[in-house]
C-alpha cells in the first residue's frame, strides 16, 4: 500500500515513524498482558497451570517480538517514504470520525436512528447525492433492517427514544 503513497508523492507522516509507533503500541499491549497475567498467578497450582500461565509467556513473546521489530525499523536507513499522504489520511478520517460518532450514539438513540443518520450523512457529504436521493435510502435501509431483525427474526437490537415513542421498543 505504501507504493501508492510513493506514486502520489504527497507529504505525510513517515512510514518509519508510524512503524516504530506500531511496534511500541504492540509492545505496550504485551506489557499489559504480562501485568494482567501476574495478577491471576503464573505458576503451577496443584490442579495444573494457573490462569495466567499461558498469557504470561504470550505477553513476553509479544514484548520480545516488538523489540526486534522496533530495532529492525530503527536500524534500517530512512528511505523517506510516507505512511500515507495527508490527503489520504483526511479521507480515512472522513470515515473513522462519523463511524466513531455512530458507535457512540447507538446506546442513546438506538441503532436504527443512528444508522439513518450515518447513511444520510455519508451520501450527502461524501457521495454528493441530492437530499431527495439520500433521504429515502437513509430511512428505507433502517426500516428494512428493523422489519428483518425485529419482526421476522425476532432479534432485538438497541432502540432509543423514537422507538419508545412509537411503542416499538422491547425495553
Amino acid at each position: 500500500m505504501s507504493d501508492t503513497a510513493h506514486e502520489t508523492g504527497g507529504a505525510g507522516p513517515s512510514h518509519r515513524g508510524v512503524e516504530a509507533g506500531v511496534a511500541v503500541v504492540v509492545g505496550a499491549f504485551g506489557i499489559i498482558t504480562v501485568l494482567g497475567s501476574l495478577k491471576v498467578g503464573i505458576g503451577w497450582a496443584d490442579d495444573g497451570p494457573m490462569a495466567g500461565f499461558f498469557p504470561f509467556y504470550i505477553g513476553l513473546a509479544i514484548i520480545i517480538a516488538s523489540v526486534v521489530n522496533l530495532y529492525n525499523v530503527l536500524a534500517a536507513p530512512n528511505d523517506g517514504s510516507v505512511f500515507a499522504t495527508w490527503e489520504q489520511i483526511y479521507k480515512v478520517l472522513t470515515v473513522v470520525v462519523p463511524t466513531a460518532v455512530y458507535v457512540t450514539i447507538i446506546p442513546f438513540v438506538g441503532i436504527y436512528v443512528a444508522s439513518a443518520l450515518l447513511i444520510g450523512l455519508f451520501m450527502l457529504w461524501l457521495g454528493k447525492y441530492k437530499p431527495q436521493a439520500a433521504i429515502p435510502v437513509a430511512i428505507g435501509v433502517p426500516i428494512f433492517f428493523f422489519i428483518t431483525f425485529e419482526r421476522w427474526f425476532l432479534v432485538p437490537l438497541p432502540k432509543g427514544p423514537l422507538e419508545q415513542m412509537l411503542g416499538l421498543a422491547v425495553g
Partner: peptide
C-alpha cells in the same frame, strides 16, 4: 410511500398504546 409507511407505523403504535387494557397486565411487546 415511505412517508405513508411511517404514518402507518405511527398509527399502529398509537393503537397499541391505546389498546393496553386497564384490567390486567399484558405484555405489549416481545
Amino acid at each position: 410511500s415511505l412517508f405513508t409507511i411511517g404514518t402507518a407505523a405511527l398509527a399502529s403504535g398509537l393503537i397499541m398504546l391505546s389498546a393496553a387494557p386497564a384490567k390486567a397486565w399484558e405484555p405489549s411487546h416481545p
